[in-house]
């Protein structure tokens, strides 16, 4: 069963095309990671799916209905990217306020306990630390016993320990049959939680695959050297010539260097660097689309 769906969805802000013909399906029981650099369009996609914005073209569906219809949102819980809590309200009051919108909310103490917030129930949210606010904001997504939670960069600004506490809560929810869509720009976070990864860059879906498949792609390294003419080498996914330097992108840099040496070709200034997520994906996708355009 599909809980959330985007069908050829585009979203434009003035001159900027934030999303370009995006398709996405989140099925019941999945834990899907939306991975991509800042400004890739992750939050825009999430805002469309939870009904905060309307697509410029295309269709979004939530539980088979329009996300802008309150009834379609009855079984979701959301943590937006920005943590904005009413500063004068106490932690417990904020939980009660959100609970009032759902027919069968999780009791306040149980929820606060689960997210390690019990001690803070009487504190005004304005006095919490950034990490405590973030944990509360994530906890609020779970108040209404949702079937789907949508978390936009849930662990931004958290220290390692708080991040792991949160990951545990997300895993427990998923183990109980819950469905999760979470965005992140950390590969580590998506690896730790998700089974399926959707990579977004420049408003498009660049990859939609298992974590392992995506890790293999992201594990691409850049081998740079100066040489006059190279033989064709196995395992090179892309070759670039910039200012007399040759850049080779490969999934196995060790083997490539061995091959280079055994080929006997003259080269200087060998350098091996990891590629950033963005670089890896953009390189590979543009290479697929237009192999001759190496700059």
């Amino acid at each position: 069963m599909t809980l959330a769906r985007a069908d050829r969805v585009s979203r434009r802000y003035g001159d900027v095309l934030a999303l370009d013909q995006v398709d996405l399906e989140v099925r019941a029981g999945e834990l899907v990671g939306l991975l991509g650099p800042n400004g890739a369009g992750k939050s825009t996609l999430i805002n469309l799916l939870v009904g905060l914005r309307r697509p410029t073209s295309g269709r979004v569906e939530l539980f088979g209905g329009d996300p802008r219809d309150p009834a379609s949102r009855r079984q979701i819980g959301v943590t937006p990217q920005e943590t904005g809590l009413p500063g004068t309200l106490r932690v417990g009051e904020v939980v009660d306020f959100v609970s009032a919108h759902y027919p069968d909310p999780i009791p306040r103490n149980e929820l606060l306990d689960q997210f390690g917030l019990s001690e803070l129930a009487r504190r005004q949210t304005g006095g919490l630390s950034g990490g405590q606010k973030r944990r509360l904001a994530v906890a609020l997504a779970f108040v209404g016993r949702p079937r789907l939670v949508v978390l936009d960069e849930p662990t931004t600004g958290l220290d390692v320990e708080a991040r792991h506490t949160l990951w545990e809560a997300i895993r427990a929810f998923h183990a109980d049959g819950g469905t999760v869509l979470l965005s992140s720009h950390y590969l580590e976070e998506v690896e730790a939680l998700a089974q399926r990864v959707v990579v977004i860059g420049q408003g498009r879906v660049l990859a939609d695959d298992s974590v392992d498949a995506v890790r293999a792609v992201v594990g691409v390294r850049r081998v740079s050297l100066t040489a006059d003419g190279l033989p064709s080498l196995p395992g090179v996914v892309r070759t670039e010539q910039v200012d007399g330097r040759t850049h080779l992108l490969t999934a196995d840099a060790d083997q490539l260097v061995r091959d280079l040496v055994t080929s006997g070709v003259e080269f200087r200034d060998l350098e091996v660097r990891p590629t950033s997520l963005e670089e890896a994906f953009l390189a590979i996708t543009t290479a697929d689309a237009q192999p001759a355009a190496a700059a």
Binding site: L52, R74, G84, P86, Y102, G144
Partner: peptide
């Protein structure tokens, strides 16, 4: 101006 306002719009109420 507060991000709380958009959050309340994700709750199941008009």
């Amino acid at each position: 101006q507060q991000p709380w306002d958009p959050f309340t719009r994700t709750l199941p109420a008009g």
